[in-house]
Design a protein around this nucleic acid. Sequence first.
DNA 1: AAGGTATAAGTTATATGACAAATATTTACA
DNA 2: TGTAAATATTTGTCATATAACTTATACCTT
Lengths: 267, 267
Amino acid sequence: MEEEIHSPAGGNPVSPFQKIGSEKLLSGRIEESIESAIRKKQYLAGQKLPTEGELCKLFSVSRTVVREAFRRLSARGLVVIRQGSGAYVNEISSESAIDSINLYLELTDDGNMIFDIIRARQLFEPEIAGLAALYRTTGELEELAGNMEELRNCPLDDIEKETEIDSRFHILIAKATHNTVVSLLMRPVFDSMPRFKRSIFAKNKIDDRQAEKRRLIQFHEDIYQAINSGDSREAAYAMQTHIKRSERNFLDSLKPGVEGLKPGVDG
Amino acid sequence: MEEEIHSPAGGNPVSPFQKIGSEKLLSGRIEESIESAIRKKQYLAGQKLPTEGELCKLFSVSRTVVREAFRRLSARGLVVIRQGSGAYVNEISSESAIDSINLYLELTDDGNMIFDIIRARQLFEPEIAGLAALYRTTGELEELAGNMEELRNCPLDDIEKETEIDSRFHILIAKATHNTVVSLLMRPVFDSMPRFKRSIFAKNKIDDRQAEKRRLIQFHEDIYQAINSGDSREAAYAMQTHIKRSERNFLDSLKPGVEGLKPGVDG
DNA sequence: AAGGTATAAGTTATATGACAAATATTTACA
DNA sequence: TGTAAATATTTGTCATATAACTTATACCTT
């Protein structure tokens, strides 16, 4: 019989797919079955899953439902589908998970999200900088130095690029903790920085920009030096100072008149 | 006939859907188009999207690709599809995003994830408890009290339930910060607690369980009191103490000999 | 025999048509 | 007017066919 599907990995002849339950949609049930097999590592990253046709026979369903199950799985980043070739377990990547958080934050932002972001940075980033000072490698220090060089060379009027470099600086520090959880969870915070900073800069007077960039560079320099010297306490302090300054910049940018104020009364 | 990409009937207010680009798959392009419309809030949560048939005509594609686009969108939590009714923009929920992170953490756990989790908690939770002490409402205090009551009443041998209650305690504190970013990002950390604690308890001597639970209750009590009295510093300290103890428990559970080895020495 | 090319086979992508199942709307009736 | 039945709409699943792409094979040239 060709009942046997793929036997991945080891010699276990038992099908990696659990019997489909009594859920609602067929495509959902098959999605769960395949997901379960992947979670149990019965299929490893890069491995090829059975073809649509094989799964049709295995589950006794039409190609439609198998394809829709694959679509759901690929949308969630669990598998990649290559036309003409097949479906493969995706190399695990944090991007899909991070994108999911970013989407949520974007959709739920009622305009006050930035306050939560700033507060979260105040809470977490000094601790992160302190940890980075303890665990950073020389390679990571070089990356930070390179990032600062990029910042110095960034044209004064290219705000888009500057904020991107800035947020990458903080991502690098989070990575230097060598804590995958910390660096993963902080990514959405840093990813949102450009979005917010755009609106801040938009309200700033142009004259302030040059001085502000000098300060930004100096803050990064201070943080870098502390991390470089392995001084955890100083790194935390430098980071705290940096973020407080950023917050003040933001609050100042709101001063002239909060956008929420109804027109009718003005200066 | 259906060659024409028609503008929606009548006076033609601009279509909410952007023109499809030059991506690879049709279903992917249509997914992006619909996602973009949702991100721009041209369709709000709960609103009904066009039917499959309408989208087929609008994009001049088959039902197959429209359905697969919908499957992807629903897998990502952007829309919900109700048979016989239609597709609706999903009420925004953090669950999908959190699940995505949880899946990533589970798949990438090589056995050392727990160290990162513990360290992340050490970094973040004291700060969170401190913030919660400042912003908690009386309702949230009641929830915390109720949670502690649940913990006291939990059977000593029901580890599954105990860990669930425990992690919920910490989730409640994160929520009490009234910072959506903080409570969202910490969720995966707390969600992973039961998974890890199972293995810790499994290696603990049964005799320790009663004393250990008493200590757990006392820690929660201390944290609660500090948060209740609005003492930010004390709340952070109590939380720090709690987590350090948890870490020691974990490290102790590894002592006798990493996995496999039966504990042969006890008090 | 080695290497490249054309061909064939396998696999996914899309289209179409049909019917089932669930829901929504309209109609008919009391 | 309110309710129930009938009808229409919409999504779910199946089946078949063809296009587009990938991989494997056979063949040819050198």
